[in-house]
Computed example of a mutant assay.
Amino acid sequence: MKRFRFTLLAICLVLLFLGWNDISLFLRNRAPETIAVTALEQNGAPREWLHVTGGTLDLLEAISTSGSIELEALLIPLKSDPQAGDFRVLVETREPGLIKLFRTYHFKLDSEEAQERYLDEHRSEFFPRQDVSGTLVTGLIATGNRDKLMTLAKDVGMQVTDDVIFIAEGKEPARIRGFIFFALALAGLVKFAAMGKRNSPPQGEA
């Protein structure tokens, strides 16, 4: 019984931690912060939920997160200058149109000449100037995912610095999950305290 109580306590503490992280993230990010990509490159992210304006996606330098034709998502540099070789912002996107272009260019064309023709025909789609909304891939909970993305980018030869800003496009801070975790943790702690009282010897016993 004592082992179960301390297992329950450990679970409650984890839920408290997860709940507080979600709640604090939500309280800091009631709405996305609008920021120009130039300011983001120079000063970093002011908050976790962003609406980035004035950037150009470079699909030609994108990489697949799956590494196969069964594409799940792409990592695409977001640049203030489309001609720049370096970048500071990477966008993880699942936009079907961009994935279709990437798949066709890399997996369905059988020669460099065919790729060049396809690129010429769709150049504006390979370098779309568009705003991006999403949340940063950062913080204690997302550290593992960020590390995987960083390792993937370096493994395929992408020139990415350690301070690169990862944005998960379309993702928003959880609005309810943190409060649910917190409520479950408090209920578990009440149960933990009640079990302790029940197992305590009556006063006056030797």
Score class of each variant (00 low, 15 high):
V52C: 12
V52W: 06
V52L: 08
T53F: 06
T53P: 04
T53M: 08
T53Q: 13
T56L: 04
L57S: 00
D58F: 00
D58E: 06
L59D: 03
L59G: 08
E61H: 15
E61P: 04
E61F: 04
E61G: 09
A62N: 07
A62I: 08
I63M: 13
I63A: 06
S64E: 02
S64W: 05
S66E: 14
G67L: 02
S68Y: 05
S68V: 02
I69E: 15
I69G: 11
I69Q: 15
E70F: 13
E70V: 07
E70S: 14
L71H: 01
E72Y: 07
E72M: 11
E72W: 01
A73K: 10
A73E: 07
A73H: 02
L74E: 12
L75D: 05
I76E: 09
I76R: 01
P77R: 13
P77K: 11
L78M: 15
K79E: 07
K79Q: 12
S80N: 05
D81N: 14
D81T: 00
D81I: 02
P82M: 10
P82W: 10
P82E: 14
Q83Y: 13
Q83S: 15
A84M: 04
G85A: 07
G85C: 03
G85T: 04
F87G: 01
F87Q: 02
F87Y: 15
R88H: 12
V89Y: 02
V89D: 01
L90N: 06
L90W: 00
L90K: 07
L90P: 04
V91I: 15
V91D: 05
V91K: 09
V91A: 08
V91M: 06
T93R: 00
T93C: 00
R94D: 04
R94S: 08
R94V: 08
E95H: 14
G97K: 12
